[in-house]
């Protein structure tokens, strides 16, 4: 079929094309990837703008019953949102601001958006990174134990538990943890994060435990199940069979032949889950009153604070795109086949 044509003549078993211009090929490839990421980000901005500014009437939503009576406030809001202008020019204004780092002014308290966001972004990053640090070794460990007992009792039990956890929404897990560990059964950890205006939520480490635990419980099952499946697939492969028939000790087979080839899908799923965490924090932060982007987003949506929501959703979507880009590049660097395909 189509592939037949791309094969070199098998009789000419010369060296495969080895690009002397490997560096240039890499640069070109990377530039293409970056370009695609920027394109995606731009389209995301279109979606965000249309969803917030064009689908409904934020001024009516903010004012509710006062819309008819409070004309002054209405006109002031409409002026701030530029309701009179055409949608295209409003979008271009907003995009221009984004590019130059001006996120606009909050409708709720008339403060610059960036000023309010910067600290919450840092808080969320800490929460996500802490969760990832706990999650990655945990998920890989469970996957390896499970793969070791493949299709026997311990494996089945682990898989069923993971599967059950994977289905439960993260905030439901969170509430169960709160009931268990802070209010109803034990009283070990605080149910909400308390932070002063100038301080950070991690000043009180105990308050971080439940949010981190909830996120870890939400993400670990996915990662672990996929890593296990990949490991099993690799362990069933012909090259692992040959390694065994060659007399390579099982531990070396596992470490050198199997894990090496299972790591790329692992990276992919971790990236996907890190990106998911960016959205998962919305509910978990709200539940634990953690001062991060998620809670801020929910509050802003409640207040119909359009500029805030626009900025926050751009940040969350941006994180997704960047994490995926990094994962793609890493996967390619770790897969010889893909790597050599680019440099030649």
């Amino acid at each position: 079929m189509t592939l037949e044509a791309t094969l070199p003549d098998p009789l000419a078993e010369g060296a495969p094309p080895r690009g002397r211009s490997g560096g240039a090929a890499w640069a070109l490839w990377l530039a293409r990837r970056l370009g695609l990421a920027v394109l995606t980000l731009w389209l995301v901005s279109v979606v965000v703008f249309l969803a917030t500014a064009a689908l409904g009437d934020p001024v009516r939503a903010i004012l509710g019953r006062d819309y008819e009576t409070n004309v002054a406030r209405r006109e002031q809001l409409e002026a701030q949102l530029g309701v009179g202008d055409s949608i295209v020019s409003r979008y271009l204004d907003w995009l221009g601001g984004l590019v130059t780092g001006d996120f606009g002014t909050s409708l709720a308290n008339q403060l610059p958006v960036w000023e309010q966001i910067s600290s919450t972004v840092a808080n969320t990053l800490v929460l996500v990174l802490l969760s990832a640090l706990v999650m990655i070794p945990l998920a890989f460990g469970i996957a390896m134990i499970s793969a070791h007992f493949r299709r026997r009792r311990p494996d089945t039990v682990i898989q069923t538990i993971l599967l059950a956890l994977a289905g439960v929404p993260e905030f439901v897990t969170g509430i169960l943890l709160v009931a268990l560990l802070s209010t109803s059964v034990f009283h070990v950890f605080p149910a909400v994060t308390i932070s002063t205006l100038d301080g950070h939520p991690w000043d009180e480490p105990k308050g971080m435990v439940l949010p981190v635990a909830t996120l870890v419980l939400a993400v670990t099952p996915y990662v672990s199940r996929i890593v296990r499946a990949t490991l099993l697939e690799v362990l069933d492969s012909d090259y692992v069979e040959l390694a065994r028939l060659k007399g390579i000790p099982e531990a070396v087979v596992m470490r050198k032949h199997a894990l090496l080839n299972a790591i790329v899908p692992g990276i992919q799923v971790i990236a996907l889950q890190l990106a998911w965490l960016a959205g998962g924090v919305v509910l978990v932060e709200t539940l634990f009153a953690y001062p991060g982007v998620g809670k801020q987003l929910v509050d802003s949506v409640r207040n119909h604070d359009v500029p805030m929501v626009q900025a926050l959703s751009m940040i969350i979507a941006g994180v997704y795109i960047v994490v995926n880009l990094v994962a793609d590049v890493l996967s390619i660097l770790l897969t010889p086949r893909a790597r050599t395909a680019i440099s030649s």
């Binding site: 012909d238 390579i248 090496l260």
Partner: peptide
């Protein structure tokens, strides 16, 4: 295995580890 009785696999393309260089695979044992 390998030392006294050796095995040559059916599908060579899938029987060599895709992420280990062949020089290394040859001397691995």
């Amino acid at each position: 295995r390998g030392e006294e009785i050796a095995y040559v696999p059916q599908d060579p393309a899938s029987a060599l580890n895709p992420s280990i260089r062949i020089g290394k695979q040859l001397v691995e044992l």
